[in-house]
Simulated assay, not measured.
Amino acid sequence: MKKVAVFASGSGSNFEAIAEAVGRGDLKAEIELLVCDKPKAKAIERAAGFNIPAFVFQPKDYDSKVAYEKEILGELKRREVDFIVLAGYMRLIGETLLSAYEGRIVNIHPSLLPAFPGKDAIGQAFDAGVKVTGVTIHFVDEGMDTGPIIDQEAVAIDREDTREQLQKKIQAVEHSLYPKTLAKLLT
């Protein structure tokens, strides 16, 4: 069974969906660690609810990205983590982690990449007035949302949708698609 670490910066709803899939046996993996760069993130509470340890850090406490990624790498190695799953982690992964986990880091993004990369993809799609957006799961490389695409699912934007409604539709797809895709990847 693969050992994974989930990286999150915010509410942790995708983390929770993954942990629930593990609990149901739909995803044959062990979540060894939550890595979080925001000490007040709700994801930390969610991890505690599943008895999953959290490594919490603040990048400003380190001299460089290399310094904090080396510390993260040490935590991952101690726990023999095989795979990294980004779930709302709002930092680009640097060379330290990319080289140690080449081809074993995945991310979820709330758009049909390559459209609307980066921050606030839902807002970008909403403001652009497109009729369809969606969710993409991709391997992580040195760019921002540029790695090879693993899976995608479209989400229609209805004329009456508010931004908040669109976000809920996207999250519903994320919470279903990510665990299913991870289950395929990790077996």
Rank of each mutant, 00 (worst) to 15 (best):
residue 59 P to V: 04
residue 59 P to S: 12
residue 59 P to K: 14
residue 60 K to M: 06
residue 61 D to I: 01
residue 61 D to C: 04
residue 62 Y to G: 04
residue 63 D to G: 15
residue 63 D to Y: 00
residue 63 D to I: 01
residue 64 S to V: 08
residue 64 S to A: 10
residue 65 K to Y: 01
residue 66 V to S: 12
residue 66 V to I: 14
residue 67 A to E: 11
residue 67 A to N: 08
residue 67 A to C: 08
residue 67 A to L: 03
residue 68 Y to R: 04
residue 68 Y to E: 05
residue 69 E to K: 01
residue 70 K to R: 14
residue 70 K to V: 00
residue 71 E to K: 14
residue 71 E to S: 02
residue 71 E to I: 05
residue 72 I to R: 02
residue 72 I to T: 06
residue 73 L to A: 12
residue 74 G to Y: 01
residue 74 G to M: 01
residue 74 G to H: 04
residue 74 G to F: 01
residue 74 G to K: 14
residue 75 E to I: 02
residue 75 E to C: 07
residue 75 E to A: 11
residue 75 E to W: 12
residue 76 L to P: 06
residue 77 K to F: 02
residue 78 R to W: 00
residue 78 R to A: 14
residue 78 R to L: 13
residue 78 R to K: 15
residue 79 R to Q: 05
residue 79 R to G: 07
residue 81 V to D: 06
residue 81 V to L: 08
residue 82 D to N: 15
residue 82 D to F: 06
residue 83 F to P: 05
residue 83 F to W: 12
residue 83 F to Q: 05
residue 84 I to V: 13
residue 84 I to G: 01
residue 84 I to P: 00
residue 85 V to G: 08
residue 85 V to K: 12
residue 85 V to N: 12
residue 85 V to D: 09
residue 85 V to H: 10
residue 86 L to R: 05
residue 87 A to K: 09
residue 87 A to E: 09
residue 87 A to D: 08
residue 88 G to E: 08
residue 88 G to C: 13
residue 88 G to Q: 11
residue 88 G to A: 11
residue 89 Y to Q: 02
residue 91 R to A: 03
residue 92 L to M: 14
residue 93 I to L: 08
residue 95 E to H: 12
residue 96 T to I: 10
residue 97 L to M: 14
residue 97 L to R: 12
residue 99 S to A: 14
residue 99 S to T: 15
residue 100 A to Q: 13
residue 101 Y to G: 12
residue 101 Y to A: 13
residue 101 Y to H: 13
residue 101 Y to E: 12
